[in-house]
């Protein structure tokens, strides 16, 4: 006689079949989530485009792009920096895993909206204003906690924003328990992505869409001292063709392709802009644990430029590994 109440054994399904069904259900759920997040991301992009488009007149036409194109490039760079962090195990060291889809969505949303604060004028720090705008957009981020995570990242993207917490250094904020490991990681990715939008593309046009040569001609043609102050900033950015992260044998690398012509004519202005970008990197969880590769069609010139501007490259770049490679394209 069998066990009371059980007349017949339950037919056992092959384990493989159950596993496959489970996998397929999981894949389906992921696909649904991916679709949902993609559609929300599209909405976030179009809304931030509207805000930045409406706000572009708030930005001085003599300064570089702080608008829509910059935001789009930062979104792209955020993805690339995240990939580099994954490749060199920084993400894993920090979180013990990779970011999931929702975390990526939050980071991308923050990247997209990091500068929307300019729409409010300059009464407060622009990053703090960006937070306020994001906090007011329950239509884009209905979940309060998600909204606060995204707006928190927008504040931390800039040193000035995180200074409102007490320090502009993300590592220090994490060490003192003001940020979680995940927040520190995401804020670092966003800050580096923003800092690496430092190249020529940043000064191809101003925020209003006016081409660089016209802006420079206008500034040069004026006797206005204020306008003239902006000139070095255009020159400085023009010295960097592009900047990107890479995997330097398991260590984070930052490659900056430099324009030899600019190094000859405005070397120190380029050095200041490069140093600012590197000091932004230094203020993240990366610290000085990275390599910077200055790539240039004239490698000897780049080396000499770096040597003669040692005064500019200060404490914040001390300890990093510096390399020079030849550009052939």
């Amino acid at each position: 006689m069998g066990t009371p109440g059980i007349s017949q054994p339950i037919p056992s399904r092959p384990v493989e079949e159950i596993k496959a069904k489970f996998k397929s259900a999981l894949e389906e759920a992921r696909e649904t989530e991916r679709y949902e997040l993609q559609s929300r991301m599209n909405k976030v992009k179009s809304e931030s485009e509207k805000i930045l488009e409406d706000a572009k007149e708030n930005v001085d036409p003599n300064i570089n792009d702080h608008g829509l194109k910059h935001a789009q490039r930062v979104v792209d760079k955020t993805e690339k920096v995240e990939t580099s962090f994954n490749d060199v195990s920084l993400t894993n060291q920090q979180m013990g895993r990779f970011q999931d889809q929702r975390e990526k969505f939050e980071l991308q949303s923050a990247a997209c909206m990091h500068d929307v604060g300019i729409a409010q004028g300059m009464k407060e720090e622009h990053a703090v204003q960006s937070r306020k705008i994001i906090d007011s957009r329950a239509d884009l981020f209905p979940d309060v906690q998600e909204r606060e995570r995204i707006s928190g990242l927008a504040v931390l993207h800039s040193k000035e924003g995180s200074r409102s917490l007490g320090s502009d250094n993300i590592s220090e904020l994490e060490r003192k328990g003001m940020l979680s490991k995940k927040e520190a990681l995401q804020a670092s990715i966003l800050r580096i992505a923003d800092a690496l939008d430092v190249g020529k593309s940043r000064v191809e046009r101003n925020t209003q869409g006016e081409p660089a040569h016209k802006v420079i001609d206008r500034i040069q043609g004026t006797q206005n001292e204020k306008a003239k102050s902006y000139l070095t900033h255009w020159r400085g950015h023009q010295g960097i063709i592009n900047a990107e992260t890479y995997n330097d044998n398991g260590r984070l690398g930052i490659r900056m392709k430099l324009d030899p012509e600019s190094l000859r004519s405005h070397g120190s202005s380029v050095a200041f802009v490069v140093n600012d970008a590197l000091s932004d990197v230094h203020s993240t969880i990366v610290g000085s644990n990275y390599t910077v590769d200055f790539k240039c069609a004239d490698k000897t010139l780049a080396r000499e430029w770096y040597r003669s501007n040692q005064g500019v490259f200060g404490e914040e770049t001390r300890g990093i590994r510096v390399e020079f490679t030849q550009a052939y394209d």
């Binding site: 300064i63 702080h66 720090e125 622009h126 800039s158 923003d194 003239k228 102050s229 900033h233 050095a271």
Partner: peptide, 20 residues
């Protein structure tokens, strides 16, 4: 001489006058 004033992630030359 090269000068640099960094404010709100933007670097510009240092003007001679404080009011500017």
């Amino acid at each position: 001489l090269a000068t640099h004033l960094r404010i709100s992630n933007t670097g510009i030359g240092v003007p001679k006058s404080a009011s500017i």
